[in-house]
Write a protein that binds this DNA or RNA. Structure first.
Length: 920
RNA sequence: GCUCGAAUGGUGAAAUGGUAGACACUGGGGACUUAAAAUCCCCUGGCCAUUGCGGCCGUGCGGGUUCGAGUCCCGCUUCGAGCACCA
């Protein structure tokens, strides 16, 4: 009987499906374990062989935990809203929903072939109204909340309104967009519109005028994580800065908690570091500088309060409100010309030409410590969105200020002893202060660190400024001028944004005739008919961004059919949080920040029980493509094998990796591949055409896409699963190379033979027992460490041992089938059922525990070293004690030449490990 | 520029401070076959010695700690990732 993967795999997949083997429910008698994959965006190209890597890894863990007795939640769904489906809709007129469901069906059939243990009854799709109802609901909760900085959590807006009614902004502790002050009296006489605008300054979901990343080509704004180096991540189109009135989420209010939360979760250091960088906490001081001849005060932020005696000019961001306030009439023309010039540059242009530009405002600020007058400039190297949009420039100790000072010939005053600032600035935060003595404060002789503290203390006491923490993390822009996304549950009454009643959720995405902006530039929803409330108020035209639907999907899996809540209390209390989350690093600063924020918000309002959503997170590496090349001799249709190509003038051409096997080209298939190769001639080496290769991104244009369906068809899902794990460490990126897959397939055939000869009930010999218990020990430890590649090797070693010792004892074959089940579930079921005669599924077996007794050695072989260099092996009874082992080593034949004429200085003995004799 | 990670055969890679290269792939040789496929066995880091069982060198580079370092420490080089006019 041969190993027939097709028959076995389809039969077991059907069996699991028919009996709902992987369906899970709350079971308070068993501990829960939640294993989650980052759900995919179902693209039109389908899955390639790289996509399932993480899914296989999590599936192994889920199955392993189940065998250990945990009640394992292991769901899957689809991140169904996204730009590609909409771009396709624009081109073809096809409704994105149609494209999306076709793609989902394709994904599902591909996933099903690999034999995952997902509970598909819990599937979610972000574009399903039953799902996005809760995305809209969460948005409304954020609209109705503010972040109380004293309580350190979100609170209902009603509480804030009550405070404003009673006290105005006096004593208000709320995270806000800008600092404003008004009295209760002023609040109470505001119009409803004015009140609405004032409250937007505090709401967690708010409408705000913000500088956004506008992508004209895509016709929409993008979040910071959707832009890289001034280009859109999707499509690579230029992005420019534009001031727009947009929905935003006050993620910045959570910066400190997002930072602190990292300490309590089990993520890799590099991922935590990435998030820390993205949050960008920086501790410094906010200081006020008076403007000469006016009562305006410039507020600036600095981390180097100690350098205040070296401030030789001030710089404002071009967008700063201070610019128009301080500019002197005689400089107005020049300043406006400069602002105009800056405005027309895109972010990318600003980045590419790092030319130092700027203009003098004519105004002078007064250094509060020295009383000296210092000029105020405008330059685009200062960012409006960070700190206060204004800085004090210390050219001696900041490279950007230095470049500016050199360009405009401004003075440079060194403040640190020994710092040579003739060629460049001295940016290091260390050294002894000089030139830093004023009438009230003297920093001379202090270390930089102490000087910073002393200055902060001084300015706080004098009321010149205060200690302040700034974050790089910005609020998330939450509006997209697109069709294929969640509609906002918002309408406008007399220009005031209002939330739809919760009973009216979900607000369904309307049908439109074309997926383009309207003629007058409104988003696509502007085309929807009757897009109003019943009493005629217009509904919001923007839709939510991609990350909206993915920010709480893990909660929905806990209770996917609940129509009264995102997640019911019982389900949430049982499943709590994700124990293991596996996905790619590309979400480090997007999804993984937003969902932590979203979760913390839901935690604050008492809707979920855990503050952090993902307890442990593993980033699987990317699978790159391995492209193959043929070499065409110039101006001919003759192709030369890779080993001979240097003798000719050749052009490398990508060739479809699916007609290449172990880098050998199927020349017939190549001729049939494309018409122009019909008459191709080949110059072979050793009778074969050998292709060249290179590692590149897996993509259609490189002809290096490998479809898992083809691998499953040829070798089976179990081979695919094992091979993907065998490829290398899970977290490492690596190219897909089909060359090694035969080895794994051979292993399964060998395994099959081991059982196919019949299973005996005789007890096993010592060697097979040792092999199986070594395996159990190794695989258990490896799964816990996600070291799956070494597990696969361990299986091979064990099966080789059992084959060569001709072991067919049930005592050994039974646990082998169980430990294999997470990796190769189909064959494990077949062995368990048909070969071992069980009538239950292997999924209900118990994970075996290794028995040390079988691993104990009767004899131990020590490498005997002289001065650390191993010279011979010594085999002695395991029980032999130190002195006897050393005596035996010295008496051994091999020892004579190393001991001859030398004196033994020292002996080192590590039980079970080594004998080392140090001689002189 | 700042932060994090990595570097081991022809290839993918193993190795709680203890015989470096497990396990595979590729390549070479052999068995079985009329033949091929499949299967099985042997060799496969380099150099030297190979009718003797052996010797020397080897984990990016330079130092250090240790009886002993791929592993720990210090200083580099190269590659990858994240952040980046963030004051």
């Amino acid at each position: 009987m041969e190993y027939n993967h097709k028959e076995i795999e389809s039969r077991w997949q059907q069996y699991w499906k028919d009996r709902e083997i992987y369906k899970v429910d709350i079971d308070s008698s068993r501990p829960k374990f939640y294993v989650l994959d980052m759900f995919p965006y179902p693209s039109g190209a389908g899955l390639h062989v790289g996509h399932p890597l993480g899914y296989i890894a999590s599936d192994i863990y889920a199955r392993y935990k189940r065998l250990q007795g945990f009640n394992v939640l292991h769901p899957m769904g689809y991140d169904a809203y996204g730009l590609p489906a909409e771009q396709y809709a624009i081109q073809t007129g096809q409704h994105p929903e149609k494209t999306t469901s076709v793609n989902i069906a394709r994904y599902r059939s591909q996933l099903d072939k690999i034999g995952f243990c997902y509970d598909w009854s819990r599937e979610v799709r972000t574009c399903d109204p039953g799902f996005y109802k809760w995305t809209q609901w969460a948005f409304q909760q954020m609209f109705n909340s503010y972040y109380d900085t004293e309580a350190g959590k979100a609170m209902p807006m009603s509480r804030l309104v009550a405070h404003l009614e009673a006290n105005g902004t006096e004593g208000l502790n709320a995270a806000s967009g800008k600092e404003v002050e008004f009295t209760a009296g002023e609040w109470n006489v505001m119009t409803p519109k004015e009140q609405s605008d004032a409250l937007m300054n505090y709401r967690i979901a708010y409408l705000g005028h913000t500088m956004v990343n506008w992508c004209p080509k895509l016709g929409t704004v993008l979040a910071n994580d959707e832009v890289s180096e001034g280009l859109s991540i999707r499509g690579g189109y230029p992005v420019e800065q534009k001031l727009m009135y947009q929905w935003c989420l006050r993620v910045s209010a959570y910066a400190e908690r997002l930072l602190h939360g990292l300490d309590s979760i089990d993520w890799t250091d590099s991922l935590k570091e990435t998030q820390r960088n993205w949050i960008g906490r920086s501790e410094g001081a906010e200081m006020r500088f008076g403007i000469d001849g006016s009562d305006i005060e410039l507020e600036i932020f600095t981390t180097r309060a100690d350098t205040i005696f070296g401030v030789t000019f001030m710089v404002l961001a071009p967008e700063s409100a201070y610019v128009s306030l301080v500019t002197k009439p005689e400089c107005k023309e020049a300043v406006e010309a400069y602002l105009n010039e800056v405005k027309h540059k895109t972010e990318r242009e600003r980045m590419i030409d790092k030319k130092v530009t700027g203009v003098f405002t004519g105004a002078y600020a007064i250094n509060p410590l020295t009383g000296k007058k210092i000029p105020v400039w405008v330059s685009d190297y200062v960012l409006a969105g960070y700190g206060t949009g204004a800085i004090m420039a210390v050219p001696a100790h900041d490279s950007r200020d230095y470049a500016f000072a050199k360009k405009f010939d401004l003075p440079i005053v060194p403040l640190i002893e020994g710092a040579d600032v003739s060629e460049q600035s001295f940016d290091a935060k260390s050294g002894t202060m000089i030139n830093s003595e004023g009438p009230e404060l003297n920093l001379n002789g202090m270390e930089v660190k102490d000087a910073i503290a002393a200055t902060k203390k001084f300015i706080a006491e004098k009321g010149i400024g205060k200690v302040k923490v700034n974050y790089r993390l910005r609020d998330a822009i939450f509006s997209r001028q697109r069709y294929w996304g969640e509609p906002f549950p918002v309408y406008y009454k007399d220009g005031i944004p209002m939330m739809l009643p919760e009973d009216n959720l979900p607000l369904l995405l309307p049908e439109i005739d074309q997926y383009l902006p309207t003629e007058n530039g409104e988003p696509p929803l502007g085309r929807a008919k009757n897009w109003t409330t019943p009493d005629g108020c217009p509904l919001e035209l923007n839709t939510m961004p991609g990350f909206a639907g993915s920010s709480a999907y893990y909660l929905r899996y806990m209770d996917p059919h609940n129509s009264d809540a995102l997640v019911g209390e019982d389900a949430n209390k049982y499943w709590r949080d994700v124990d293991l989350y596996i996905g790619g690093t590309e979400h480090a600063t997007g999804h993984l920040i937003y969902s932590r924020f979203w979760n913390k918000f839901l935690f604050d309002i008492g809707k979920v029980v855990c503050d952090e959503p993902f307890r442990k997170l593993i980033n699987q590496g990317m699978i790159q493509g391995r492209s193959n090349f043929v070499y065409r001799i110039k101006d001919s249709n003759t192709f030369v094998s890779a080993g001979l190509k240097d003798r000719y003038d050749v052009t490398p051409i990508h060739v479809d990796v699916n007609i290449v096997s172990n880098d050998v080209l199927d020349t017939e298939a190549f001729r049939n591949w494309r018409p122009e190769f019909n008459t191709a001639e080949f110059i072979l080496e050793d009778g074969k055409y050998v292709c060249g290769w290179a590692v590149e991104k897996m993509s259609k244009s490189m002809f290096n896409v490998v479809n898992p369906d083809d691998i499953v068809d040829r070798y089976g899902a179990d081979t695919l699963r094992l091979y993907e794990m065998f490829l290398g460490p899970l977290e490492q990126s690596k190219p897909w190379d089909t060359n090694g897959i035969d080895g794994v397939n051979r292993f399964l055939k060998k395994l099959w033979k081991l059982y196919a000869g019949g299973v005996s009930d005789e007890p096993a010999q010592a060697a097979p027992l040792k092999a199986i218990h070594t395996l159990i020990k190794k695989v258990t430890a490896d799964i816990e460490n996600f070291s799956y590649n070494t597990s696969v090797a361990a299986f091979m070693i064990c099966v080789n041992e059992l084959t060569s010792s001709k072991c067919n004892s049930r005592e050994v074959l039974e646990p082998l089938a169980v430990v294999l089940a997470p990796f190769a579930p189909h064959i494990a079921e077949e062995l368990w059922h048909s070969m071992l005669g069980h009538d239950t599924t292997v999924c209900d077996a118990n994970w075996p525990v290794h028995d040390e007794a079988h691993l104990v050695e009767q004899e131990v072989t020590y490498p005997v070293s002289f001065n650390g260099k191993a010279r011979f092996n010594l085999t002695v009874p395991a029980a032999m004690q130190k002195d006897d082992v050393i005596a035996a080593a010295m008496a051994h034949d091999g020892a004579a030449k190393w001991l001859e004429g030398k004196e033994v200085v020292k002996t080192i003995f590590v039980p079970g490990k080594i004998v080392n004799i140090v001689v002189k």
